[in-house]
């Protein structure tokens, strides 16, 4: 067999699979988004944007991402730095940090619901300490801020580890000699982190941030469990259009919007955290 053709041939099954089960349905959804009863129209987008909930969902989603992702990034960097420095028990620490990764997002939402619920752990604790004399409605419809904080906490708890794992792997790729050189030439621990670790970690930072930002725009189950309809987000609205309001075309438009936002941010981070070819390790 011709050697040059072999790699393409080997990639063929996966490519076909993607085309049939991803590209084709994607094309169908995209078509549904811009048509109604077979005719081309942008009405679906107008309907979606015209809903009174739309600005709120966009705002909530972006705000959640804007608050959760930076906090996670800082925490993941901190945890990765600590884990990378461990000489013994490194994998044990990694496993412990990674436990939330093994839990589905709905389950994570329910765990946090069990904490914040009217009869949950937090209320039990507060009343046993005598701080409150009757259970507080943390997640009631009047307390949007508490719901927001609870969702942010659950998201941070659930998905920081995925960033950390990527960053730990990235830190492992930075040769020790660079740190030693920096140390000899006068860099303090903080300067070593800022001037060696961060710049050399850029490829991993890029991957971690892009992955996490995309996940942040797709936030759904945690919000559903903790906030119900009190904290509408983009993904929840897409679900609503599809199943509650039974309008596939607007749901498709909404899904496309999420995709567009994700692609937009991905391109942004690809550009901003780009490493010039000559400056790679």
């Amino acid at each position: 067999m011709h050697g040059k053709a072999l790699p393409y041939l080997l990639l063929m099954p996966a490519t076909l699979f993607l085309c049939i089960f991803f590209l084709y349905p994607f094309a169908l959804v995209a078509f549904e988004a811009v048509s109604r009863d077979g005719a081309f129209t942008l009405d679906n987008f107008r309907t979606m944007a015209g809903s009174w909930k739309f600005p709120v969902t966009v705002r909530n989603t972006l705000l959640l991402a804007a608050i959760v992702v930076p906090i996670q990034l800082v925490m993941a960097l901190l945890m990765a730095s600590v884990v990378s420095r461990l000489e013994t028990g490194r994998s044990a620490a990694l496993y412990v940090f990674a436990i939330p990764l093994g839990i589905s997002d709905l389950a994570a939402g329910m765990i946090w619901l069990a904490i914040f619920d009217q009869s949950g752990f937090l209320n039990t604790l507060l009343s046993s300490l005598g701080v409150v004399d009757r259970p507080v409605m943390f997640l009631g419809y009047q307390s949007k801020l508490t719901i927001f904080i609870a969702v942010a906490l659950a998201e941070i708890w659930r998905a920081t580890a995925i960033m950390m794992v990527i960053l730990v792997a990235g830190m492992g790729l930075i040769p020790k000699e660079y740190y030693e050189a920096a140390e000899v030439f006068g860099a303090s621990p903080w300067q070593r982190f800022r001037r060696i670790t961060l710049p050399l970690l850029r490829p991993s930072l890029q991957t971690a941030i892009i992955l996490r930002v995309i996940l942040a725009f797709e936030v759904f189950a945690v919000v559903a469990a903790l906030g119900g309809t009190n904290l509408p987000v983009l993904m929840g609205e897409t679900y609503n259009w599809q199943f509650t309001l039974q309008d596939r075309n607007v749901a498709a438009a909404s899904a496309l919007l999420i995709l567009a936002i994700s692609i937009g941010f991905t391109l942004f981070f690809l550009r901003v955290l780009r490493v010039p070819k000559e400056a790679r390790i």
């Binding site: 040769p175 000699e177 660079y178 030693e180 050189a181 920096a182 000899v184 060696i196 710049p199 050399l200 850029r202 490493v275 400056a279 790679r280 390790i281």
Partner: peptide, 11 residues
Amino acid sequence: MVFQNYAVFPH
């Protein structure tokens, strides 16, 4: 110090 693998910072 001069290191064996030079440790010239790539970035």
